[in-house]
Nucleic acid binder design. Structure first.
Length: 104
DNA sequence: CTGTTGACCAAAT
DNA sequence: TATTTGGCCAACA
């Protein structure tokens, strides 16, 4: 059986995440109606075409951290993008205690 | 087909 | 509060 959603479903949902907000991989999976598919969401973002214009940087893990090695360029890029929209990191964790999601 | 890997997660320790 | 453990699903070797 195939996944209960297609990559484009995730792209569509991700596109709706407002600037200055962050969501977790698991949340995206839930929003797609597929609890337990957090890893698959990660795989999809991994394959995301560059120049898609999607706010991939607003996706973090459930620990409230960026899912890249701290030393990596990707990590720094994501952090930079987040800070440019007012989301700062404290101790490697997003400085917003609760991940904001303005409902549907 | 089996085994490993990954932008994950929640519960147990 | 910090780590470890077990579970998760799809992609790949």
């Amino acid at each position: 059986m195939h996944a209960p959603f297609s990559p484009s479903d995730i792209w569509f949902i991700l596109a709706k995440i407002p600037e200055g907000n962050v969501v977790t991989y698991g949340q995206l999976a839930n929003m797609a109606g597929a609890p337990g598919y957090a890893r698959v969401v990660g795989n999809i973002l991994k394959q995301l075409p560059s120049g898609s214009g999607l706010p991939w940087h607003r996706v973090i893990n459930s620990k409230g951290q960026i899912s890249f090695p701290e030393a990596s360029a990707k990590y720094q890029q994501q952090q930079s993008l987040l800070e440019s929209e007012g989301v700062t990191l404290l101790n490697g964790k997003v400085n917003l205690k609760l991940y904001q999601w303005n409902g549907e």
